[in-house]
Design a binder for these strands. Structure first.
Length: 627
DNA sequence: GCAAGGTC
């Protein structure tokens, strides 16, 4: 029997060929540079296998010719207009390969990732293969990791494609296209009519773009509306003379700070009547600073933005390149736990030659330094956490920095938590409680290889329980609440991830899109990049908010609802057509309301375009003494 | 000229 296996991407087709054939396979080139066909016998099922792959989705969807031109139809018609499906231009060579291989096969076995998109891509592969071999038998291999035992099991006990999952993705594809195109055309044409000089490019709407923009605008509005508030607190400190230097040990007031001056003053005056403070408790305990979790795509992007100052999209592009070069594992993963069978030692050994972290890697390998990585809560059942697969000695610039971060993170995960010794001193003074905390770092462990985390010792004088002292400083001080900062890219990635806007592979793209479309500008303050909404971005979001929908176009709830509907389609409690009909009705209604009241958006954009810049500033008052 | 999701 001849079996044609099709994976979602080249790396997987190669891995499963290596495993199933025990490394003895023949390689054939195809019309696509990235795709190879691998041939071998698989005696376990008495079959001949050919393993190949696609590169993500094969099909693309667009409106039929009648509705492709902007001027020739009402955007509202796009909710019902016919959609045509075709093989994407850059996928024609892959399609040709599938057709040719299917012709010679008795069975088609789908090896795409085991998630919704994978199921849908599987259905696309089936539709192409059936065009050259109508009656080909279709099976689906089920695997959750590229591990020999699992891959053999998948090959020997295939199941069927889950058409419900494929259908749920179809619904999402159609819905996003209809909503996106209808709103984009309506917005663009209305605004360009009025603001010819200002708005020349597309004013896009997307069910992920707009909530993303909504986060940026919402924070901006919070910053604008912020009113600083004054607060008061008791500052208590003891100055001690240790080895010629004067050391000030500050104590934190248990009450934190108070916003009522009269109350703070009354307490303060009461406290001052007492001459001495008394140590009521000294707590000493071992403490740990935990090593980081294994690295996911979202965490890589956050760290890249915060620590390396690289845009999320840039980090992902570099990781993709390093993956292509064989230096990194697959960079799009939600998994933050390593499989128990993962071969850590071989990978650690590859890093022992590095001039910067080689000695640390050697310590992990030879001196009992290795400890199994912590397990996070996420597993996409398809890819391991991001890790280096080979040593890279010749990288430069940002490539080098990204590789270094990923490698240090991996070695840190395989190391031990840092150990310290913490002392807490609780003090009573005039009926009020204060405390100070000291730390001695005993073993740096993972921190030696992971300079991105900071943990330093803070010494305290040796206080004894029951000891009394006269405070050197006891003052009523004031301060002001500080305004929130604008969003950073790392903050935005976190918000999107939490609210289910986009996926690990697309979050960075959505951020780039709202910048490209001129909705958001990046502003550097020192070394930190903040996201500032443009006049257009604010005008759109505030305008739609003013129109007022049951579920806001600029908030994550609508996307969450789409997600929920997809789950129902997957579970079989709803059909794809029901989901589409419900959603489209809902969006049609919103579209009609949006268009009827679009003047509110126009007014918002106009006020801001004519009102000038986005500058916002609030004075930041340093803390000062009252007495 | 529109979306979001895979992938290169």
């Amino acid at each position: 029997m001849k079996v044609l296996c099709v994976a979602e991407k080249p790396s997987i087709s190669k891995s499963i060929s290596q495993i199933l054939s025990g490394g003895r396979f023949a390689t054939r080139a195809t019309g696509s540079n990235f795709v190879k066909n691998y041939d071998f016998d698989y005696p376990q099922t008495n079959a001949h296998f050919t393993v190949t792959c696609v590169a993500g989705h094969l099909l693309e969807h667009d409106f039929a010719e009648t509705h492709r031109k902007w001027q020739t139809c009402d955007p509202f018609a796009l909710f019902e207009a016919p959609i045509v499906t075709s093989v994407a231009k850059d996928k024609k060579a892959i399609e040709a390969n599938l057709r040719a291989e299917a012709r010679n096969a008795d069975q088609l076995m789908i090896w795409t990732d085991c998630d919704r998109e994978g199921e849908n891509i599987g259905a696309e592969i089936v539709s192409v293969c059936r065009q050259s071999k109508r009656n080909i038998v279709v099976k689906r291999a089920r695997f959750s990791a590229i591990i020999a035992q699992q891959i053999h099991n998948a090959a020997q006990h295939p199941i069927n494609l889950d058409m419900a999952q494929a259908a749920a993705v179809d619904a999402r594809i159609f819905l996003d296209l209809r909503i996106g195109a209808a709103f984009t055309r309506m917005q663009t044409m209305s605004l360009q009519d009025i603001f010819k000089q200002h708005i020349t490019s597309v004013v896009s709407y997307g069910p992920c773009q707009f909530p993303t923009l909504g986060f940026v605008v919402s924070r901006y509005n919070q910053v604008q509306a912020f009113q600083p508030e004054q607060f008061w607190y008791i500052y208590l400190a003891l100055t001690s003379n240790t080895s010629q230097e004067q050391e000030e040990t500050p104590f934190n007031w248990r009450r934190g700070h108070l916003f009522e001056f009269d109350v703070a003053l009354a307490i303060y005056e009461d406290v001052l009547r007492h001459p001495r403070a008394r140590v009521i408790k000294v707590t000493k305990k071992e403490t740990k600073k935990w090593k980081p979790y294994p690295l996911t795509t979202v965490e890589l992007q956050k760290a890249g933005s915060r620590l390396l100052k690289l845009a999320p999209k840039k980090v992902l592009d570099i990781a993709e390149k390093l993956y292509q070069g064989g230096f990194l594992s697959y960079p799009r993963t939600e998994t933050d736990q390593f499989d128990p069978q993962f071969d850590f030692m071989t990978l650690i050994a590859k890093q022992t030659v590095d001039p910067a972290w080689g000695a640390f890697a050697t310590g992990l390998r030879d001196n009992n330094g290795f400890t199994t990585p912590r397990k996070g809560k996420n597993n996409d059942q398809a890819h391991p956490p991001i890790h280096p697969t080979a040593h890279a000695g010749n990288l430069t610039g940002d490539d080098k920095r990204v590789y270094e971060f990923i490698t240090r993170r991996f070695l840190a995960c395989c190391s031990k938590d840092a150990l310290g010794f913490q002392t807490t001193v609780d003090v009573e003074y005039g009926g009020e409680e204060f405390s100070a905390t000291g730390l001695i770092v005993l073993e740096r462990n993972y921190l030696e290889v992971y300079p991105y985390d900071k943990w330093s010792s803070k010494e305290l004088p040796d206080f004894q329980e029951g000891e009394e002292f006269v405070p050197s400083i006891c003052e009523l001080r004031d301060g002001w609440t500080t305004k929130p900062t604008l969003l950073t890219e790392a903050d935005l990635v976190t918000l999107m991830d939490k609210n289910g806007i986009g996926t690990d592979a697309t979050i960075a793209q959505h951020i780039e899109t709202i910048i490209d479309r001129g909705y958001v500008l990046a502003r550097m303050e020192g070394a930190t990049k903040y996201l500032v909404p443009s006049t257009l971005g604010i005008g759109l979001i505030d305008g739609y908010n003013e129109i007022g929908f049951d579920r806001s176009l600029s908030k994550p709830q609508l996307r969450r609802q789409t997600e929920r509907s997809m789950v129902e389609v997957c579970q079989g409690t709803k059909t794809k057509n029901d989901m589409l009909a419900e959603s489209i009705d809902q969006y049609k209604e919103m579209f009609i309301k949006a268009r009827r009241e679009f003047q509110k958006v126009i007014t918002n954009v106009r006020t801001r375009l004519e009102g000038g810049g986005n500058a916002c500033c609030c004075p930041r008052t340093p803390s000062r003494r009252i007495r």
